[in-house]
Design a binder for these strands. Sequence first.
DNA 1: ATTATCTATAGATCTATAGATAATGC
DNA 2: ATTATCTATAGATCTATAGATAATGC
Lengths: 227, 227
Amino acid sequence: MGGGECTRDQDRSTGGAPGGEPPQRPRDARETRARILGAAGAVFAERGYEAATVRDIAARAGVNQALIFRYFGSKKALVTEVMAQDGKEQLSTTPPERLFETALRGVLTEGGGAGADRLLAVYLRSIGSADAAPETVRALGEEYAAALASLSEADDSTLRAQLAMAWLLGIGLMRVVVGQEPLASAAPDAVCAHVLTALNRLLPVLPGGEAGAGDAGTEEARPGVRS
Amino acid sequence: MGGGECTRDQDRSTGGAPGGEPPQRPRDARETRARILGAAGAVFAERGYEAATVRDIAARAGVNQALIFRYFGSKKALVTEVMAQDGKEQLSTTPPERLFETALRGVLTEGGGAGADRLLAVYLRSIGSADAAPETVRALGEEYAAALASLSEADDSTLRAQLAMAWLLGIGLMRVVVGQEPLASAAPDAVCAHVLTALNRLLPVLPGGEAGAGDAGTEEARPGVRS
DNA sequence: ATTATCTATAGATCTATAGATAATGC
DNA sequence: ATTATCTATAGATCTATAGATAATGC
């Protein structure tokens, strides 16, 4: 039957100088909840929904595994909250006309691990998992597409917007998840320039649209906006 | 103390007319192996690497679950063989200049479930799984990109080719895995036209490149080659 | 006799829960 | 007294293997 073998749930700082940081934090439900949410975002982004275990998340948050269920109910509810939070943050803080390039640069710079790019990593690594809140994922994607589509007047503007977002996802897939070279370590500006130039025909309203006004230069694309 | 509870591994045709097809096939190692491989491709494509269980695969193949390990050694080896087989098939039967559009149309038409589009479904649904033969996945992707890049003379032709493939993957993701509307049920010709037109600036050698030779019409893109 | 197939189960997870313990607030 | 946290484990998988059984080929 089930073997109880909990060696350690939190490391309690047995590392460098003894007595460095207090391993016993004051009890605070709100902070614990926040710690779990933060750790969950990181672990889900690194490993994807299925491979990330609640024990991993608890260990990174420095809390007991049972607290995850106390505060969130289930693993699925946890990932749903992570994605919804990160998504709403980006959607509310970024104006539609900058949404695409901001998201693209988020994928390209990576590393930082802020809220927004983390969302995409979670999304990408969890997309194959049937349990990973597919409705949340779809709803979020539709909100992004709707924001982008609001910029265009073409009658198939939503389709165009979704195609642009599909490219974003695909680039993230190749770069972050698969790590395919040379794309994985290509200069963000170079990738951004290629993509915005090509998309100029699909969504002329995006920045970078004024690139080749007179001559449709395939080679000369300006290196995008430096963030 | 695992519970042995094998109810039924193969259905043995208890369905319509009694004695329809012989439930007891003649023993044939090669055919059994082939049946497993076919069933594995289908189940991996439907559910992805992690969610697909060897029992599912055995049930669909109509064989005992233990035979999978006898013939392939491990689940990982099985998915590796599925992907490698499907990939080599497409790479060897499709000339480089038709590779992109063929793959794109494969994603867009779906349903058929032939060898090539199945590969992409397996790829997409399994990409988040660390165990799902990441080396095979990467190697296969690099072969595709190399084939595409051989068409271009730009010094960053491989990067351009990978960006094009990234779009392909992203469209597959949105359409096949996420099922986002309106992209999921958009007409293949319309999607194909948008994509090939936009990519005209990135990889001018692709078909559809001659679209807007004089005027760069954003709206009028010819509906691609009908397969 | 050889080899394909099946039975039974080991062994290793993982999510989730019930109930005990210990820190807080009054 | 209340509430945050921890212990222990139920219950449900899943991959993989060892060894038994039954169909083939000589």
